[in-house]
């Protein structure tokens, strides 16, 4: 089983399109659209959201992403009616990027908390930030070096594009480790993409925390396998 995702948008087309986009990267994840009103207008419907949550109820929980203010309010309202609220979490994240990151994390087997974190990890760049690059300062602040490191050369033709970045960020979000890749936050898909690391460039991975070694090996495994691409 995997965590399901529910997309709440004012527009049925936005919700359906976002689901279509995310499904490309997460074929085994149930991603449900709850867009527009029951009669096909712009707006949000409690009934639609609750129907989606109902469909997701049998699984390992669901993470909800919403677009604008009242979609968030409708999602929050729906959460007041669910039987086991700890299984359903509303992510505070930009809809499309958050959805893709969440879907990839769910595809990687992350639990509901980790899927929510994966969605929210993309929000730095959407709020301005330093060209999307989120540097984890932990090591430099505490003066403690990383618990585990590794250097891996990119071998696939296309380098670090969206799908590899999503794979790295998605998998790392399920691990108990803070990870940087060439200084960028490893759990942030957008931060990884802004590295613009092409074929032949070397990724320096540093990790802190209980799963530090697993995290570095996870990234290394993906990179060395060319992310499953030519």
């Amino acid at each position: 089983m995997t965590v399901s995702i529910v997309v709440v948008s004012h527009s049925e087309k936005i919700a359906d399109g976002a689901v279509e986009l995310a499904a490309q990267m997460a074929p085994n994840v149930v991603i449900l659209a709850a867009g527009g009103t029951g009669d096909g207008r712009i707006g949000t419907s409690l009934e639609k959201v609750m129907a989606a949550l109902d469909k997701a109820a049998g699984g390992d929980g669901a993470v909800i992403l919403a677009d604008l203010g009242s979609a968030v309010m409708t999602a929050e309202s729906a959460l007041e009616f669910v039987d086991d609220p700890e299984k359903f979490l509303l992510a505070d994240a930009p809809l499309v990027e958050g959805l893709v990151a969440a879907s990839v994390a769910a595809q990687g087997g992350a639990d509901v908390e980790a899927v929510k974190r994966a969605a929210e990890a993309v929000r730095g760049p959407a709020h301005g930030g330093d060209a999307g690059r989120q540097v984890v300062e932990e090591g430099s602040v505490t003066g403690q070096g990383p618990d585990f490191t590794g250097d891996f050369e990119i071998i696939n033709q296309a380098g670090m594009h969206a799908r590899p970045a999503a794979k790295i960020a998605g998998g790392l979000s399920a691990l108990a480790a803070d990870v940087t890749v060439n200084g960028a936050d490893g759990a942030s898909m957008t931060a990884l993409m802004t590295l613009a690391a092409g074929k032949g460039s070397v990724l320096h991975v540093e990790a802190w925390g209980a799963d530090a070694e697993r995290a570095v090996n996870y990234v290394g495994g993906l990179v060395q396998a060319g992310f499953g691409e030519p």
Partner: peptide
């Protein structure tokens, strides 16, 4: 409450519904 949340569509739905 339940009807407004489902039928209003805009922000007033969840607000008045709640």
């Amino acid at each position: 409450a339940m009807t407004l949340m489902s039928k209003v569509g805009g922000a007033a739905g969840p607000l008045y519904g709640t």
